[in-house]
Design a protein around this nucleic acid. Structure first.
Lengths: 214, 214
DNA sequence: GTTCCCATACCGCTTTCGGGGTATTTTTCA
DNA sequence: TGAAAAATACCCCGAAAGCGGTATGGGAAC
C-alpha cells in the first residue's frame, strides 16, 4: 500500500487533544505517520522500543518531568532518534537549553501546520530548526546575543551589563555594589538605556530583556 | 451533499497547531464543521458575524485577554451562541468563573477526542458540561513546571488580571482606569500579589509573569 | 450562621525611580 | 594628536512604588 515507508513519529504531550490533533494533521501526510502517542514521561522509553519511531515530538510541559531533560535521556538511549521540542513557551532560555541538550529543534505551538510540517521534514532530513520567533536570533547563532544587540541598539557593554542586572531584579543600589560604581552612575546608565530603547521604566526593560534574550 | 446541515464551530485559540489539530479532528465528523479559526481576541466578534457559528471553542489563555471574559462578551452580543471553554488549566476557580459567566462548558485539553466530541454534542443539544476532572492541584507540586501552577493557584482571578496588566507595563493609575478600580485597591492587590509570590517589586513580577506565560 | 476569602478602599510614611541637568576622566581610533 | 564615545559622578525635584496598617461588604464554605 505504501510504496515508500513513511517516517514514524511518536507524540509525547500530556494534552491529549493537542496530541490527537497533531496526529490527525500528520496522518494526512503520505510520507509521515504517527506510530504512537504518549501522555506520560514514564511511558516514553517503552513506547520508543515498541513503536520504533524516527522522530519524537516532545512537549516541555509534561507531568512529572520536563521535556528537555526527557529528550536528553532519550538521546542517551537512542542517539539516532530525532527530537523536536514543541512548546507554548517562547523563552530564549528554554530554546538555549534545548540546543545545548543536543535536541534537533524547538518550535512554538502557535506555529502554523505548514510550518510544523516543514520543520519536521527539515529535521528528518538531518537538519535542525530553532524557532526564530522565540527571540530575535538567527538559526546560526554562534556569537553571543549580547554582541548582536549591542550593535543593533547601540547599547554599550556597560549598559548591557546593567540591563542584565536590572532584569535579574537588582535595584540601583545593589547594582552599584555589585559592579563597584556610584549609585549616581548606575542611574545615569539607566537613563541612557531608557533613552536608547525608547522606554521609560524598569518593567519595560525587563520585558525587553527577556524577549530579546539578554 | 449534506442532507442535514452540520453544526458550525468557531475555534478561538492562539496556539495555531492546537487550533489546526482540533479543526482536523472535528472536520472528520459528518455532523460538525469548523467554520472559522481565530487567533486573537480582537478578531472574535467580526469572525462570529462573518462565520455565523453555533458553538465556540474558546481557550482561556489568550494573549493579553482572558477567555472567560471574552466568552461573556460574546454572549452579550450573541446570546444564542454556545460557548465551550477548552483549557489546560485544571483550576476549580476558573471552572467556577466559567459557570458563573453563563458559558456552557469547561473541558480540559487533556481530554480525549472522544470526550471532546461527546461534550460538543451535549452542549449543542442544549446541555452544559463542566469537567469533573478539574482537580485541586495544590497537592501536586512535583515537577519542574508545577511551580507555574502551584504559585499561580494562589493568585485570585483579580490578581492574575493585575499581574497581566503590570506585565504589559501599566502603572497603578492606568490599571485602575482600565479595570475601573480605585488606585488604592490596585495597590492593595499589588501588595497581596507580592506577598503571595514572595517578591518585592514590579520587575520581579514581570519576570515571573513572562516566565510563567501569564 | 459564623468564619474565612475575596474584592474593594483608604491613610501615612519612606524609599526608589525617572527626568532634567552638568561635568570630569579614560578609551578609542581616525 | 585631537575629537568622539564611553564611563564615571553629582545635583535637584516630583512622581511612583513599596510597606505598614485598617476596614467593610458579599459570597463561599463548612
Amino acid at each position: 500500500m505504501q510504496p515508500v515507508p513513511a517516517f514514524r513519529i511518536l507524540l509525547i504531550d500530556d494534552h491529549r487533544l493537542f496530541n490527537d490533533g497533531v496526529k490527525s494533521l500528520l496522518n494526512d501526510q503520505p510520507d509521515l505517520m504517527v506510530c504512537g502517542q504518549v501522555f506520560q514521561a514514564s511511558e516514553v522509553l517503552s513506547a520508543i522500543q515498541r513503536t520504533n519511531p524516527d522522530l519524537i515530538l516532545l512537549d516541555i510541559n509534561l507531568q512529572g518531568s520536563n521535556g528537555i531533560d526527557l529528550g536528553k535521556t532519550i538521546l542517551g538511549h537512542y542517539p539516532d532518534l530525532r527530537v523536536l521540542i514543541l512548546t507554548m513557551y517562547s523563552q530564549p532560555k528554554l530554546l538555549d537549553e534545548t540546543r545545548k541538550a543536543g535536541l534537533h529543534g524547538y518550535l512554538l505551538k502557535d506555529a502554523t501546520t505548514h510550518e510544523l510540517l516543514q520543520v519536521i521534514r527539515e529535521i528528518l532530513g538531518g537538519n535542525t530548526y530553532f524557532d526564530t520567533n522565540v527571540a530575535d536570533l538567527s538559526s546560526t547563532a554562534d556569537n553571543t546575543f549580547s554582541d548582536r544587540f549591542a550593535q543593533r541598539l547601540n547599547l554599550t557593554f556597560r549598559e548591557l551589563e546593567i540591563v542584565s542586572l536590572i532584569k535579574e531584579g537588582l535595584n540601583n543600589e545593589q547594582i552599584a555594589e555589585r559592579i563597584h560604581l556610584s549609585i549616581e552612575t548606575v542611574k545615569t546608565h539607566r537613563k541612557n538605556i531608557y533613552f536608547k530603547l525608547d522606554i521609560s521604566k524598569a518593567t519595560d526593560l525587563v520585558r525587553f530583556a527577556i524577549e530579546h534574550g539578554l
